[in-house]
Design a protein around this nucleic acid. Sequence first.
DNA 1: GTTACTGCAAACCGTTTGCACTAGA
DNA 2: TCTAGTGCAAACGGTTTGCAGTAAC
Lengths: 139, 139
Amino acid sequence: MDLSRRLRSRGHRVTPQRKAVLEVLQENEGVPLDPEAVFELTRERHAGIGLATVYRTLELFRDLGVVLRVHLHEGSQHYEINTGGHHHHMVCVSCGSVDEFDGCVVDDLEESIREDSDFVVTSHCLSLFGYCPACLTAR
Amino acid sequence: MDLSRRLRSRGHRVTPQRKAVLEVLQENEGVPLDPEAVFELTRERHAGIGLATVYRTLELFRDLGVVLRVHLHEGSQHYEINTGGHHHHMVCVSCGSVDEFDGCVVDDLEESIREDSDFVVTSHCLSLFGYCPACLTAR
DNA sequence: GTTACTGCAAACCGTTTGCACTAGA
DNA sequence: TCTAGTGCAAACGGTTTGCAGTAAC
């Protein structure tokens, strides 16, 4: 398993809790989950896990590049498995559902920023808000 | 004063606290401030103001379209005066300073989303992260 | 055997809320 | 006068932290 290698190479230990959290994230590829949701889902496969462990695990995974932190509009942080593909999210302001979209235009923007200013852009954060098809038809 | 008109037209009252908060925001045009910072700055002109009043005032101003809420990467919410001009922010990950940039590319993206999917985009959130000129030369 | 990791509970911090008092209209 | 607005302190909710016990290596 790739996780084991990544953990051990940095002096971390492989624990059932970490494996369980990883499995939950993998099963929910493309669905950003908040720590509470990860906690609930992980409990189903590792009953005794504590919420603090989930927080610590998500932070560690982020450090290792295993997960990405997603900034949705409000409330708590969300995490999703890092598949390597660059994408952003469309968030429905009515039902809260989240869709991915590829084809990020910010690369072009970063280019023009690089030309127009002395600011060096290393990353960005982009989310779109609006109404998903289901909520549109429901109105 | 425009604020008075906007407040009264919605049945709100004009108070010295609200005027003071507005002045602070106007003096810091282009600088997103968090509630704590607004609180500290407003205290300099209206000593007795409470933090809760600042929160309530910022929320009211947002409702009235007087301020915009800015989503920087971490921590608390930030607010800045709404000048009507659409722009986004470049945040220095080293010193935390914030610069504006105009020329939002997301309009094009919203266009292509509209063609490619059934999701209707009504707003978006974009921030760039990197290093400001000062921090670059300091390295 | 050593020490990283865990679960628990308490602490923390930004934000919201209930309430009695104050002041704008 | 009437009721929106205020300051205060307590409550709230997501997150972090200290610690003693547990388990990976």
